[in-house]
């Protein structure tokens, strides 16, 4: 029978995890090795400068790229399922834009301090992302229907408003902070030491786990809201949780790395093409491939024109933009568009 040709879901799950973990390990090793100064294990043991360069700069940067990439990709995969729209991602829905406004405000007002250990930039970016999310969702919902055209259009408009707001904030704030905002908008994964990474992990790991716990619900929701509800999914609760979790993921990554476009769009699609549509496979696989992808993009960004560095956001957009257009071109495959 034809159906037997499809391997069981659990087999595909483990196969995808194994392959992508290997890929991630390979890219991470390459990224640790490559750079203005190639990794030299002997020097690492004897030379304190080499040690500092490696442990305070290169290793944290690779980990940061992995964290940002995985978070954006897993958020993108969840959003595509929640909105039943293959073109949804934190950037196209305006969520990154909202987060950027929050973060720009925090920088402009010089709110460098922390509230009980949490940087204000995180909180503001989360607030901005959540606000954008709710706005776009509200506009695109009509009763129990999500209008795919309205969703993307609202995302575009929210993004335009957000970039205008960031520009305005830059204009009215003083020059040094405006420069800080500009540097941050371009997006960079430069990081010194592990402080920021620990602080991010406190937020990111619970978010990932919550999304994995909702993977089955998202899998059912991706096939339609009514059928998911009739199969026992609490649709309203799932929506609220995914909204909050994705806002937090996007807020934190935007606050740290700036708006890095298209990772959330192309990584889940690559995973789908490789391992199928099941969200219980797509979510964890997107996490791994997202990390691998951004680590690779960042390695290209810092080694291509060495010693000059390209903004990693430009690399992902240059790759992701054409991928987005290709998806649009193929959209007849997706009946909901």
């Amino acid at each position: 029978m034809a159906a037997i040709a499809q391997p069981a879901t659990s087999a595909r799950f483990w196969r995808s995890l194994a392959i992508l973990t290997l890929l991630l390990a390979l890219f991470a090793l390459l990224a640790l090795w490559a750079g203005g100064r190639k990794l030299d294990l002997q020097a690492l043991e004897t030379d304190p400068v080499a040690r500092v360069l490696f442990f305070r700069l290169r290793l944290p940067r690779v980990i940061m790229a992995g964290l940002v990439g995985s978070s954006l990709a897993v958020a993108g995969a969840a959003l595509q399922a929640l909105f039943r729209n293959p073109l949804a991602d934190p950037a196209t829905l305006g969520v990154s834009g909202g987060g950027a406004v929050g973060a720009a405000l925090a920088i402009a007002f010089g709110w460098g301090e922390r509230v009980t250990g949490v940087p204000v930039v995180f909180i503001m970016a989360f607030g901005g992302a959540l606000a954008a999310f709710l706005l776009v969702h509200r506009i695109s919902r009509s009763g129990s229907l999500l209008l795919p055209g309205a969703l993307l259009l609202a995302g575009v408009v929210v993004n335009l408003i957000a970039s205008a707001a960031v520009l305005t904030i830059q204009y009215v704030t003083d020059a040094s902070r405006a420069l800080q905002i500009l540097r941050w908008i371009i997006g960079s994964l430069d990081v010194i030491g592990f402080d920021t990474i620990w602080r991010m992990l406190i937020f990111l790991i619970p978010c990932w786990l919550v999304l994995f716990a909702f993977a089955r619900d998202l899998h059912l929701l991706a096939m339609g809201e009514d059928s998911a509800g009739a199969l026992g999914v609490n649709v309203a609760r799932c929506e609220v949780v995914v909204h909050l979790v994705c806002s937090l993921l996007v807020g934190v990554t935007v606050a740290v790395g700036g708006a890095i476009a298209f990772v959330g769009l192309i990584v889940p699609h690559a995973v789908r093409m490789l391992f199928g549509e099941d969200l219980r496979i797509v979510l964890p696989s997107s996490l791994l491939l997202g990390a691998a992808f951004l680590i690779a993009a960042d390695t290209v960004a810092r080694t291509l024109l060495d010693p000059n560095e390209l903004p990693v956001g430009a690399i992902t957009a240059l790759l992701g933009g054409p991928a987005f257009l290709w998806l649009l071109h193929r959209r007849q495959r997706y009946s909901a568009l």
Binding site: A3, Q6, Q80, R84, N85, P86, P148, A222, M223, G224, S227, R272, G276, E277, D278, R333, Y334, S335, A336, L337
Partner: peptide, 11 residues
């Protein structure tokens, strides 16, 4: 039952 993603029938 409009579907946005190309799931297989068995899925």
């Amino acid at each position: 039952s409009q579907l946005a993603f190309p799931f297989t029938v068995l899925e």
